[in-house]
Design a protein around this nucleic acid. Structure first.
Lengths: 218, 218
DNA sequence: ATTACTACTCACCGAGTAA
DNA sequence: TTTACTCGGTGAGTAGTAA
């Protein structure tokens, strides 16, 4: 409805239209057209004044924003080469605590703060993927654009570059998936970092099933 | 709903999702999510196969087209500088038959056929605008981009350039608004041409009120 | 001619539940 | 665990009509 009004000129100017004509144009009844206008007005998406010859209608800035917003969202989906996000599922398991060693390295930590926007809890949440679908999806993920964390050297050794994806864990907690400190795990394992200790925050225990939604970077 | 699936990856790949998860993501019930998937499948917008762990969903080409189509329409409205169309209303009146003389000129006629896509009936339908709103809108129209018909000379005289807008008369008949053979009418008059004799086609009589939707050329 | 109120209908949504 | 049926309530659309 808002779109129809926009199309008929209310996006760019103040248009005069009768509810009857609007109804014909949109294939609804005059009464419904009238009520729709009242509702759009209440929502603050259109400005509406009634004359004896019909309604004067124009989209408000809020209404225009609504359309622009929808437009932008569609633009991203339609024009993107990669999916915006993929969701994986697996079982939590205890690792060897090796992740913590890497995360604590200042060379990584500074970049996490800068590029992910949070200071990671020193430890990783390990997830084992247990279906072919998840493992296949995990592999596809490697081709999708990521946040790049650069490698570095310190006194004793070299640390390789790392790829990250912003991640939503169990539809609640924010964190990031990291690929991967030349890990000994194969591609059926995910390593997640987060600002907080996820096992406490989400009350996760070993062997529990969790879902992670992983966002690519278009 | 279709958008939500696209956003979750079904636009670019085959995704596995449970109706429960989909419901949580979209704020509806599991039952409704399930039914929505069935309906989208029936419409042919998604391809759906059911496994014991959830549904495998991917958008069909038809489904993708739907989103692209909506995207294009929004793009036009949001990015356009001018309204896509304006609607004017007025009373039909009889002119002096002068329009016919101009329309019959081959120099114009050939361009009408080429640029408007129809061979105009030799005569114009004249409409007198009778409210301030319509006259003001008619004046705004002069700034909007139009189909340009070039002027020409024949043995006896010179014919000036003309601007046209595709037009829908009474929400039924196609034609074009023409601006204007250096007309003696002021800006409260519209001259419409059409492939057929509109007075017969639409059963229009003098002094009858008609609506014309005029399309700009973005 | 308008807009928009009051009823009424119907379709959609979700709870319960089967498979 | 899944999906998806039936059924009952609610909200959206329309007819009639007042202003």
């Amino acid at each position: 409805m808002l779109y129809k009004l926009a199309e008929m000129g209310a996006y760019h100017r103040t248009m005069k239209v009768s509810t009857q004509y609007l109804a014909e144009k949109t294939g609804i009844s005059q009464q419904t057209a009238s009520r729709n206008l009242i509702e759009l007005d209440k929502l603050g998406w259109i400005k509406r004044s009634i004359t004896t010859e019909g309604c004067l209608i124009t989209l408000t800035d809020v209404g225009k924003e609504r359309l622009k917003n929808l437009y932008s969202k569609l633009k991203i989906v339609v024009e993107a080469v990669y999916p915006l996000s993929v969701t994986l599922e697996g079982l939590v398991f205890s690792g060897l605590g090796e992740g913590a060693y890497y995360i604590k390295q200042d060379g990584y930590r500074k970049q996490f703060i800068e590029k992910l926007g949070f200071d990671p809890y020193p430890g990783t949440l390990n997830i084992r993927l247990d279906t072919d679908y998840d493992i296949k999806t995990r592999q596809e993920l490697e081709n999708y654009p990521a946040i790049e964390i650069e490698g570095f050297k310190n006194e004793s050794r070299t640390f390789g570059p790392v790829k990250c994806y912003p991640t939503l864990i169990n539809n609640k907690a924010k964190g990031a998936l990291i690929f991967a400190f030349r890990t000994h795990y194969d591609s059926s394992v995910l390593e997640i970092i987060a600002p907080q200790y996820l096992r406490n925050q989400l009350k996760i225990k070993d062997q529990q099933k969790i879902k992670v939604e992983i966002f690519t970077m278009p």
